[in-house]
């Protein structure tokens, strides 16, 4: 609050004072009081107004400046009411009280939704848990009745299982709860778990897998990373080119004390115009229009999980040639200490 703002705000008060003072002077003149008494009255009156205004300006200026500064500095602006000490003038007090009750009502409202979100998430976790049991039975039934169709059945069971996992990890990635467990994980182990799980589908599609340099440990959550790599692999199979057999090559390299995992396939690739948007929610782009299985959720969840784990993820591609994802794991010594 500047002096100018304050003066502008009080303009009408000064105007009223000036009129009242003018009337006083007219009265004094009417009673034939002239000269010096008028000057004395004017000086006293001006002194009263000025001193009152300075005092008034000061206490407001302090209060408003604190409000402005805290609001600017605060990351979460709604903490403002907790940062203010109650001023000694009425409007200030009133403002503080109002802010406080607004805040309270907002917190209650936010909590209501938080509760709803966490209830929903709990339900999803429970549902996933339940849904996995019949899937497990199906897998065993298919294995116990080996025949020509069991490979195909297994691939479809795998698809159901992937869909279920998608829901679970979406729910997890959207919620603030910290339910990942970061420790040293072998990239080789993670990849082999994903590969074994996708083996039937890969073989039916005639795909080939090569790995290089995966003998590295990274700091991550094993289950989450398996989901991430599984998604990338599912995408490679989904967007394989019909012109040539699918080749997936996975390698890890150490660059500037970071470990980078390169996941590359020789599929249909991504149109250049679509590249910046592939991690966006519900974005299906050019490939999505020609493939009805695209939901635009897979990579969005992947990106979200990577963000939460602190891994970088980027993509490069050339249409009809290749797609390559790079996941960067920071070599975080801090994690290792704990």
């Amino acid at each position: 609050m500047t002096i100018r703002d304050y003066l502008k705000d009080r303009l009408i008060a000064y105007f009223i004072w000036a009129i009242c003072h003018a009337i006083t002077i007219i009265f004094l003149l009417a009673y034939k009081v002239g000269g010096q008494p008028i000057i004395v009255v004017t000086v006293i009156s001006i002194m009263a107004v000025v001193s009152h205004e300075i005092w008034n300006l000061n206490r407001r200026k302090n209060f408003y400046n604190i409000i402005r500064k805290t609001t600017e500095e605060l990351d979460q602006k709604y903490f403002l009411s907790e940062m203010l000490s109650e001023p000694d003038f009425y409007e200030g007090k009133f403002l503080c009280d109002t802010l406080y009750s607004c805040n309270k009502s907002m917190v209650e409202n936010v909590n209501k939704y938080k509760k709803k979100a966490s209830d929903f998430r709990e339900y999803i976790e429970l549902w996933v848990h339940e849904a996995k049991i019949p899937v497990a039975s199906l897998r065993l039934i298919s294995h116990n009745n080996l025949g020509v169709v069991s490979d195909k059945v297994n691939v479809q069971i795998k698809r159901i299982d992937d869909c279920i996992d998608n829901v679970l990890y979406y729910a997890r990635s959207e919620n603030a709860e910290k339910d990942y467990n970061i420790k040293e994980v072998s990239l080789k182990k993670v990849f082999s778990n994903v590969a074994v799980r996708n083996r039937e589908a890969l073989q039916l599609s005639g795909g080939n897998l090569t790995t290089y340099g995966l003998d590295r440990e990274v700091m991550t959550d094993k289950k989450w990373l398996e989901f991430i790599v599984g998604q990338l692999m599912a995408n490679s199979m989904k967007y394989a080119s019909v012109k040539r057999p699918l080749e997936i090559s996975v390698k890890a390299k150490e660059v500037d004390s970071n470990v980078i995992l390169y996941f590359r396939d020789n599929g249909i690739g991504i149109v250049e115009a679509d590249l910046p948007y592939v991690f966006e929610k519900s974005f299906t782009g050019h490939n999505g229009r020609s493939n009805s299985e695209s939901t635009g959720m897979g990579l969005y969840i992947v990106k979200n999980l990577c963000d939460r784990l602190g891994h970088g993820i980027s993509v490069s591609s050339k249409e009809n040639e290749y797609t390559e994802f790079q996941i960067t794991f920071a070599r975080n010594e801090f994690y290792k200490m704990s």
Binding site: E125, V135, N181, V196, R197, K223
Partner: peptide, 29 residues
């Protein structure tokens, strides 16, 4: 187990389980 979390695995192993497998398991594995 069918839970995909890490915690159950850690708890089970610390209680002395010899191995830990999540559903739906690959029968051969």
């Amino acid at each position: 187990t069918s839970s995909a979390g890490d915690i159950d695995e850690v708890v089970s192993m610390s209680y002395g389980a010899d191995d830990y497998i999540t559903k739906p398991y690959n029968p051969t594995i």
